[in-house]
Amino acid sequence: MADSTDKARMIAHCLTDAEFEGVPGFSSNKVRDAYQLPDRRRLLISTDRQSAFDHVLAAVPHKGQVLTQTARYWFDVTADVCPNHVLSYPDPNVVLVKDLDMLPLEMVVRGYLTGSTNTSPWPMYARGERVLYGHRFPEGMKKNQPLPEPVITPTTKSAQGGHDVPTTEAEILSTQLVTTEQWHEMARKSLALFARGQQVAAEKGLILVDTKYEFGLDENGVVVVADEIHTPDSSRFWIADSYEERFAAGEEPESLDKEFLRLWITSQCDPYTEPIPPIPDDTIIEFSDKYIALIERVTGQTFNRPDPALSVRARIREALAREFPEYF
Rank of each mutant, 00 (worst) to 15 (best):
F26V: 09
S51Q: 05
Q50Y: 07
V225S: 12
G205Y: 03
D164M: 11
P280A: 02
E326L: 06
C14L: 04
V56S: 09
S311D: 00
V151K: 11
S311P: 10
V81F: 07
P280R: 06
S234R: 05
R110D: 02
D218V: 11
K7P: 12
E296I: 01
G300M: 06
F328A: 15
Y327H: 15
E139D: 13
I295P: 02
M1R: 10
F26Y: 15
V60G: 04
K7I: 14
L173F: 13
P138L: 08
T153F: 10
D39M: 09
R317Q: 13
G205R: 08
V97T: 15
I239W: 02
P104A: 08
M124H: 07
P121A: 14
F20N: 00
I316E: 00
M102L: 01
I276P: 04
T266Q: 11
N84I: 08
L15N: 15
R40H: 14
E244Q: 06
T266H: 07
V81L: 08
Y133D: 15
P253R: 09
V178P: 14
G197V: 08
D233I: 09
I279H: 13
G250R: 04
L294Q: 09
Q69E: 13
D210A: 03
E251Q: 15
Q268N: 07
N29W: 09
E129M: 11
P38D: 06
K143M: 10
L193S: 12
V224W: 02
N144S: 10
P232C: 04
